[in-house]
Design a protein around this nucleic acid. Structure first.
Lengths: 137, 137
DNA sequence: TCTGCGGATGAAAAAGCTTCTCATTATTAT
DNA sequence: ATAATAATGAGAAGCTTTTTCATCCGCAGA
């Protein structure tokens, strides 16, 4: 039940928040732009403003429910903050997104941050390339 | 001499392009937003439009003279593509940027891209943290 | 169940970065 | 030097995201 997740996060249980969380959880793909979520809401017949979508996603991010990624072109995408950390590889032709985790890289990152005197708060690795499907074209 | 670099890149030698390349090469910090470059041009008395700055930086990127990074907040920064590839670690408090290269990570990235069927075109690793200077505060 | 307060929402405007348009100007090859 | 072609500047436009403000709703208490 979504309402308990919201309450746990210290957020009032409102229709927009429930519906948005619903879409994030139900949708087949994990990555959503604010626009994606907005369109999905329209399809289910909900009249929720784009400003509210942004507000809610930002609140979800602050509450740790969601992670925000800054992809090329100034677009942000959001994904549920469930499961483990992972990095992303994007196809520059079709926009496909794959995820991966690599312990070797994770460990090295920790070392590097320490070497440079940083206390690491976050990190993200984006790889851009041409996916298998697009290579032939 | 900048003009030869421009010619080599297949770009006409124009005043805006020379001046912008000049700023990128002379400036003490390696990372510049388009706005930074624009302001620096104004300070040297050059009347070059912001639109031209964006155009030229984009052309420089296409020509491989410059690399473009997408930092958080939808801002792009440009840096001369001289020397070797490197990744970035940013202080979330003071905005300081440090660079590093790690061969272990570089190698693993190649492997991962191949495993997932991608032909990698680019990659960037951003680490966010609190730098040594800001830790005390 | 009813009531009231504070937070949440919607619509539209605004903000910030980046790109486009188009008339004018400058560069390069001849 | 000249003509063809590309580059520039100024402003408008495009996009994503944030802000404003009047209205509305969830929730705690009566």
């Amino acid at each position: 039940m979504e309402s308990s997740e919201l309450r746990k996060a210290g957020l009032k249980v409102t229709l927009p928040r429930v519906k948005i969380l619903d879409i994030l959880e139900q949708s087949s793909n994990r990555h959503h732009s604010a626009e994606d979520v907005y369109k999905a809401l329209l399809e289910t017949g909900e009249e929720i403003g784009l400003a509210t979508v942004y507000r809610v996603l930002t609140q979800f991010e602050a509450a740790g429910l969601v992670k925000r990624h800054h992809f090329e072109g100034g677009h942000s995408v959001f994904e549920l903050n469930q499961g483990t950390h992972h990095d992303h590889i994007l196809c520059v032709k079709c926009g496909r997104v794959d995820e991966f985790v690599d312990e070797t890289i994770e460990a090295r990152q920790q070392d590097i941050a320490a070497e440079l005197g940083y206390e690491m708060t976050d990190h993200c690795l984006y790889m851009y390339g041409i996916c298998a499907d697009c290579k032939g074209k």
